[in-house]
Structure formats: C-alpha cells, structure tokens
C-alpha cells in the first residue's frame, strides 16, 4: 500500500487517501454488496472501496489478476455506481490486458500537469521500495517467532513504512532501507533451539492480507516456526512473468500448462519445498478459488511422494478462528512427532 501511495502522491497533484486497515467492518460492507459466491478478495476490495468513497475519494484504481479477478474491476464499478457513488474508475488491467498508453491517457484526464518522464522516475523508485519492503518482510517472517519483546517487530515495521513514504530519492530510500535492516537485525531475539521450517503457498490475496488469513503467520510464529512464503508484491509485479516458464519446465512431470493465477507457481514451489526438506507445507485459499482447487490434488500427490505433511485452509467470512487454531496446533504436534521419532 505504501509504495502505491508514494507513487501516486508524487505523480499526481490530487490528494491521495490511504485506504483504512481492513477490519470486520470492511468485510461486512463487502459481503453486503457482493454476489454471494464470489471469492473473498472481491468482497474485501469492494468493502475497502466503499470505505474510501465514504472518506471522500472520487477516483478509484483497481489492478487485476490472472483469474476471474481480471474481471472484477468492471463488476465492482457497476455495483458502486448502482449504490449511487460518483467517482472515476481507473482500471489498470482492462479486458485482461494491461495497456500503458490507455492508463496514461486516463491519468492525463485527471491531472493535466501529469508528466510521463517524472512518473517513470517515481515508478522505478516505488518498485525499488516494494523490493525492499518484501525483503524486510521475508526477514520478519523468518524471525518473528523468536522475538524477545512481543510486538517489537511489527512496531518497527510500522515505523519503517512511515519513513519510506518520506523518501526523497533513490539514494535516500537505499539509506533508509539499510538503516532499518540494521535495526531489525539488532532487535533482541531468543535463541533458536528447535526450529521447524514451514512453507506457505496458495492464493495470493489470502496469503498476503493478514486479516483475510486470520493472522496465520503470526499464529505460526508463536510456536517458534520459521516461515517461508514466496508470494509477495515484488514477485507478482516483476518476477512472475519471467519465472513461469522455468516453473513449468521444473514441474513437467505433474503439469503441462499453467492453470491460471498462481496454481502452476504453487505446484513448483511445493515441489521445491519438498526437495528442500521443509517440515511442512500450508496451503491457503479463499473459498471457491478455482485455480487453487485445480492445484490441490497435484500438491497432494507431490507431498505424498516426498512424504511431507501438508494442510489446506479455505477461508471464508464465516470460518471460526478457533477451528483454525486447533488445526494449526495439531499440525505443529504432527511435525514435532515426526521429528522426534
């Protein structure tokens, strides 16, 4: 969220409204106005849009994905217009394709002073920022289970994000990154005596939005589990295109074409995690996520071949938190039993 805010606030004169944190209220708004059987990301983003419109936004930006998410923008625009909101809708991915020229035209319409040169510069800075944030997140995920003071990692992360929005140039950003990297390294941590490694794969939105997955990463961290997750913003924006061919080659025993969204990527990662002898794999998706449903039997097969335990979570608005905790606890017990045999 921060890099996008940074980018837009630098290339446009307009005031940018930061979307509020996703909460129960967001979800309720989303569920109320969404088709019943649509997947959770649609409901979350629609809820966020409504909250932003209430805050006074009049321009909304929607990106897209490789599954039915690609058509969400059109549907959400219709729903919001029907609700009586007045706004301009910028769809970065229309008809399943990204058209840079068209986006430029649209941005020009909003702001006449819009300069392509300047925006290219800031696009590069923002993309760098995404990369740095993902790197820090990666470190947090591996170490948060061992933090000495509860919440110290998350509060430092908040501080870092605030500092990032004030970055002036490439160099300044780099300096900030190094500074916070050092700070994270210096945070007091417990000794890692029994360390289990768990990989998390699955549908991208559920993976990346902590509210949508009931803060599962934090829940795992409480058990002192180090977590590896490949899907992050940088991967989705810049790496996915180049890596998909490699992934397909590596998993040619299991799949012969990409199955939409992140399904093929997840099959490849699952195989990689198994080969790297990870202690367990957690697969998450929102209910009715078709690409991931297609991937699940293949994941099952891979895990059986390599004898690595895997559990599946399917999140919806109604899943109770206690049930999830029970399953995680049992999963942890299982990993521990397997290790101590």
């Amino acid at each position: 969220m921060v890099p996008v805010y940074y980018l837009l606030s630098h290339i446009l004169k307009e005031e940018i409204i930061m979307p509020p944190m996703i909460t129960q209220k967001t979800l309720e708004l989303g569920v109320k106005h969404s088709p019943e059987f649509v997947c959770m990301p649609f409901k979350f983003t629609l809820g966020t849009f409504i909250e932003c419109l209430e805050k006074g936004a009049n321009i909304l930006v929607q990106a897209g994905g490789g599954c039915r998410y690609g058509y969400y923008a059109e549907l959400q625009e219709e729903i919001l217009k029907e609700l009586g909101y007045d706004f301009t809708y910028i769809n970065l991915v229309s008809k399943g394709k990204m058209d840079i020229k068209e986006i430029r035209e649209q941005l020009k319409k909003i702001d006449i002073t819009f300069s392509t040169k300047k925006s290219i510069y800031y696009v590069f800075i923002s993309s760098k920022m995404i990369k740095y944030m993902d790197k820090i997140d990666f470190y947090i995920r591996e170490n948060i289970g061992f933090e000495e003071k509860k919440g110290s990692f998350l509060s430092l992360k908040g501080e870092m994000l605030k500092a990032f929005t004030k970055a002036k140039s490439f160099f300044h950003l780099f300096y900030l990154y190094q500074k916070y990297k050092y700070k994270f390294r210096k945070l007091p941590k417990k000794k890692k005596n029994k360390k289990y490694k768990v990989g998390i794969i699955g549908e991208l939105y559920t993976l990346m939005e902590p509210f949508a997955n009931y803060h599962i990463e934090y829940e795992l961290a409480k058990y002192g589990i180090a977590i590896l997750r490949y899907t992050n913003v940088h991967y989705l924006l810049f790496e996915k295109k180049n890596k998909i061919k490699k992934y397909l080659k590596k998993t040619k025993d299991y799949i012969s074409y990409k199955m939409g969204a992140d399904a093929a990527d997840n099959v490849a990662r699952c195989k990689y995690l198994c080969m790297k002898k990870y202690d367990g794999i957690i697969h998450m998706k929102s209910s009715f996520c078709t690409p991931e449903i297609g991937a699940m039997p293949i994941l099952n097969k891979i895990c059986k071949e390599y004898d690595v335990p895997i559990i599946y979570f399917s999140f919806d608005a109604a899943t109770s938190e206690v049930g999830i905790k029970t399953r995680i606890e049992a999963f942890y017990d299982m990993i521990e039993m397997r290790k101590n045999k």
Binding site: S287, P309, S314, D316, A318, T319, G323, T326, R327, A330, D333, M334, M337, R338, K341
Partner: peptide, 21 residues
C-alpha cells in the same frame, strides 16, 4: 460438531484431516 480422520504410521501421526466449513 466435527469429524476427523487421523492416519498413523509406526506410532506417529502421519496425516490428519478435519471437516471444513
């Protein structure tokens, strides 16, 4: 309220599943 299956091999839990939604 729930149903589960637990698979055991040599005295170790190998796999389990619980009813979902």
């Amino acid at each position: 309220q729930d149903s589960k299956i637990i698979l055991i091999e040599n005295g170790i839990i190998k796999d389990y599943a619980m009813n979902t939604l």
